[in-house]
Design a protein around this nucleic acid. Structure first.
Lengths: 217, 217
DNA sequence: CGGGCCCCCTGACATTTGTCATGCGGAGTG
DNA sequence: CACTCCGCATGACAAATGTCAGGGGGCCCG
């Protein structure tokens, strides 16, 4: 035993390259990224995945130091994967990469223990730096996304309001929403009404759009 | 003058590497792709752009052999850029790359003279081959996207119906739509009604979703 | 314990919506 | 030309939706 007081949960490995898991459903991007990151001397990709479940399986199999996950993937999104990963592999840092940065997503991600959150508009060079930052145990959140998230604030919707709004998302009539939520139609209309006024929207559909934009549904 | 009978419009350059323009608003992907495609001996990236207008400007400045455009970019989408490009640089082939392949987009793209249309799920290796195919004067359309487009068929909506549906997209009330389209409210309702029934939707909002899915708006 | 939330429901009302019957005019056809 | 089809428009009517004013019950916290 050469080290005393090693903290298995949070200590970064100090020897060898950073071992990466790359997950993105778009083969083109994942492959390109893999190639590019491999050019960095201190980074090595040990596994790739094209879906949420696959990412989990790969992580279990290879126990990477850092998992770079796309936010939107088939099967399970990046945040869900991060949640599972946190439980199963506490030593694996998670970095989320996304095209469409919606405020609510960032919040959910941080709650899931994600260590980094960046938009795909950064350069690969910059991403490599951020991977190192995350691997060193620090956090990194894109400043612009952080500002958006702060500006958007917390959801003003109660659980029910959010649920009903969610069911209204695809344009279903009140009767159907009521049935699916096991509520009376009047109640559904009340929830929708209060959600609409809280969001300052014209009607329920505009409200759905707003809530989606801010990641509240 | 060293060449006779050069056909400026359609002839592929037969000497030297294929000169590429790469346009994608996501720096990460664009950069990674640039690096990866540069590894191919016969491909060279002569310009990059992060928006529609920028892509146009770069194309004018560098006159690339093939323009690889993302479908969704700020300023002007890939198809719009392709349309302008066709007029200004007839010798420049256009290849569209997209994350979300919606049937209608493919149709619009082909009408704009685009030579290739592929999803981002292909590998970089495959993309390089497709670039060569396009450069040689042939067309390439992803088989799956083509099948979807054929299955979806043409839009059953009349021009007015589509216009009104478009205006209804963000949940605006009929009164606002009527004003913006300079129609009576009754007329707007009729158009919406017929659009809804043509699409087999429950109501206008579901109709908007369907039309969007199929790329008809 | 009392107050403040939130949840769930009801009923009545104004507004917005979806649907229908109908009319006008141009394009294509026999 | 007469006829029909179709896009376009309108207003009337029925149905769905949004809004408001209540009321009962559960939960947490000062």
């Amino acid at each position: 035993m050469t080290e005393l007081h090693r903290d298995d949960h949070t200590a970064a490995r100090t020897t060898g390259p950073v071992r990466l898991l790359l997950a993105d459903d778009e083969h083109l991007i994942r492959g390109a990224l893999a190639t590019l990151l491999s050019l960095e001397d201190d980074l090595v990709i040990v596994a790739e995945a094209a879906s949420g479940p696959e990412a989990l399986a790969m992580a279990r199999a290879h126990a990477p130091d850092v998992a770079v996950l796309d936010l939107q993937m088939p099967g399970a999104d990046g945040v869900k994967v991060a949640t599972s990963l946190r439980a199963e592999l506490p030593g694996c840092r998670v970095l989320i990469v996304t095209s469409h940065g919606r405020p609510g997503h960032l919040k959910r991600a941080l709650e899931a223990g994600v260590r980094g959150f960046v938009p795909k508009t950064v350069s690969a060079q910059r991403l490599a730096e951020i991977i190192r930052t995350v691997h060193a145990g620090n956090r990194y959140v894109d400043p612009e996304l952080a500002a958006d998230a702060i500006a958007a604030g917390d959801s003003p919707l109660t659980a029910r309001e959010a649920e009903v709004l969610e069911l209204a998302a695809d344009g279903a009539p009140v009767a159907e929403i009521a049935e699916r939520a096991a509520l009376s139609q009047g109640t559904v209309r009340n929830y929708l009404s209060s959600a609409v006024s809280k969001l300052g929207a014209e009607n329920r559909h505009a409200a759905v759009r707003l809530a989606r934009q801010r990641g509240w549904v």
